[in-house]
Design a protein around this nucleic acid. Structure first.
Length: 515
RNA sequence: GGGAAUGUAGCUCAGAUGGUAGAGCAACGGACUUUUAAUCCGUAGGUCUCGGGUUCGAGCCCCGACAUUCUCACCA
């Protein structure tokens, strides 16, 4: 071979594994395995501990003449014969015995391979095993002298070779970037990751069950939009070659679901990915999962009830009570959640009358907010709200009745057109859900699409004209309630996780440079 | 985008005031039939992120780049 490229230990480690790979092939065994039937989950095997029958200890035979007694009393034991499959996590060699710890997605268990018990060929194979390899094991499930639940192997099946060196067997992966990048190894080696990701799946299933039980149907809207509407966010831009048109990745589900309301799908929801071309931090990933639902003939108050059902149902699904710990604090999700009006909270937290524009403006100035001359009074009001009120909301609390001008897709209160029938659900200062009584007046909607509020940046505005959506409303959309929940954040809260990266299997990372 | 910190073996980490690099795990060889982060003896493994500079001499000091983490701003 030509001069080695500096590879160092890594090259040596791989060479050692490839040498074993070669030996396995020489033995006539496929190092990449094949179908393997009849195995039990390790968790279910461990649950069968009660089937192990323990007999009376048998005194060891007398030692040879002049030798001290060295054998321990033998305890006869028998247990069920089982077959399992998993990844080798630990390996302890002890002469003619090999102890392995293998893991599948339900747990870990110890395997004992004895040279004189397993047969020559299996022993030869066992000597070629590396940490990280996948094997199948047949054997009797019982205990060692130390009481460790163990499968005493009678047969080994090689299922797949691992060429890469696994992380440190004790400390695992700790670098946050590596954990996301090598998520496959993070799932294997970091405690709690598998459980959290599976809990995410359970939460999603629970939401579908809850909504199904309420008569909602799940649909799939388009993710490629020619108008990226329904939210205030910067979209990703892409292009369709055959049509030669620019397209945006969707930033919300809203406008197509409402079209379906027009079409007569009276209770409709979608759980799907949306894409926002914005910053990345502990609570933001460029692609994330939204749940939006729309209920004909409902309003934002109906949405509060459903929100509570979704959250408590999800807590039930992952086996948690309604009082949970998150970010070091306790939150009580026992319904009904608190309901507080936006204006009342504003007055309470700032001491300023939200209706007094000059006072609000003076207060904003005292907070150091800038460009007040150029901003709509409601934009200023909301900036103060976000600054002084939102972060202080422990929750869970429904904040209700928002200033209408910052809610261009929301129906106004009949008694006061300056107030929108909207709520947001906050927990510990974080927005978890957002709901409206949906605006279904096409003329007003068209006007609101045209009016970008003073002081709003274009990309932060929802003022994006969607002519087809207006046309749909002109055909008549039932009065309705609509709700959006950020699924990733919900999972974070329910699984006591403070980083969104910990609840997304493959968060966006800068591409790695190879070679 | 601003600020702070970090970048040393496959993984996890040490390397005071500058003197050409260390441990544990993993690997290789040996001993061991009830271990369990096994143990013991031995061996091998490094362009100290990259590029400049200062210096007789740089992992360490200076400048720059790149990357990551945390944080602030923006957004959900």
């Amino acid at each position: 071979m030509a001069k080695e490229e500096s590879g160092g230990t890594g090259v040596v480690l791989e060479a050692s594994r490839r040498e074993k790979l070669r030996k396995i092939i020489e033995m006539g065994i496929d190092p990449w395995g094949s179908r393997f039937d009849g195995q039990l989950s390790i968790g279910s095997v461990r649950a069968r501990e009660n089937e192990i029958v323990v007999g009376e200890p048998i005194a060891p035979p007398p030692p040879p003449e002049g030798q001290p007694q060295w054998r321990k009393p033998e305890i006869p034991m028998s247990g069920p014969t089982v077959r399992v499959a998993g990844r080798i996590m630990l390996q302890r060699r002890q002469g003619k015995l090999i102890f392995l710890t293998i893991r599948d997605w339900t747990g870990q268990i110890q395997i004992l391979i004895g040279k004189n018990q397993v047969g020559e060929k299996n022993w030869e194979l066992a000597l070629c095993l590396d940490l990280g390899d996948l094997i199948g094991v047949d054997g009797e499930f019982k205990k060692t002298q130390k009481g460790e639940l163990t499968i005493f192997a009678s047969g080994l099946t090689f299922l797949s070779k691992s060429i890469e060196t696994p992380p440190d067997k004790h400390s695992g992966l700790s670098d946050p970037e590596l954990r996301s990048r090598l998520r496959y190894m993070d799932l294997v080696h970091t405690d709690g990751v598998m459980e959290r990701m599976l809990n995410r799946t359970k939460i999603l299933a629970s939401i579908r069950k809850t909504l199904g039980g309420e008569g909602f149907v799940e649909v799939e809207g388009p993710t490629l939009h020619s108008v990226a509407g329904g939210a205030a966010a910067r979209p990703f831009l892409t292009h369709h070659n055959a049509l030669d048109i620019p397209l945006y990745m969707r930033i919300a589900l809203e406008l197509h679901l409402k079209r379906l309301l027009v079409g007569g799908m009276e209770r409709v929801y979608e759980i799907g990915r949306v894409y926002r071309n914005e910053g990345i931090d502990q609570t933001h990933n460029p692609e994330f999962t939204m749940m939006e639902l729309y209920q004909a003939y409902g309003d934002y108050r109906s949405m509060m009830d459903i929100t509570e059902k979704i959250i408590t149902g999800a807590l039930d699904a992952i086996g948690k009570g309604y009082k949970i710990e998150w970010a070091g604090k306790e939150f009580d999700f026992t319904p009904p959640f608190a309901r507080r009006s936006y204006f009342e909270l504003f007055r309470e937290k700032t001491g300023v009358d939200p209706a007094d524009r000059d006072a609000v403006r003076a207060y904003a100035a005292s907070l150091g907010l800038e460009d007040l001359d150029k901003k709509d009074p409601d934009v200023i009001l909301n900036e103060v709200f976000e600054e002084k009120v939102e972060d202080a909301l422990e929750g869970p609390v429904f904040v209700t009745d928002y200033p209408a001008s910052i809610c261009p897709l929301t129906k106004r209160k009949r008694s006061n057109p300056a107030i929108a029938e909207r709520f947001e659900l906050f927990i510990n200062g974080m927005e978890l859900a957002n709901a409206y009584t949906e605006l279904n007046d096409p003329d007003l909607q068209e006007e609101l699409f045209r009016n970008q509020l003073a002081g709003q940046k274009e990309e932060d505005s929802m003022a994006k004209m969607d002519h087809d959506f207006i046309r749909a409303l002109r055909h008549g959309m039932p009065p309705a309630g609509g709700l959006g929940i950020g699924i990733d954040r919900l999972v974070m809260i329910l699984t006591n996780t403070t980083s969104i990266r910990e609840v997304i299997l493959f968060p966006l990372l800068r591409p790695e440079k190879f070679g």
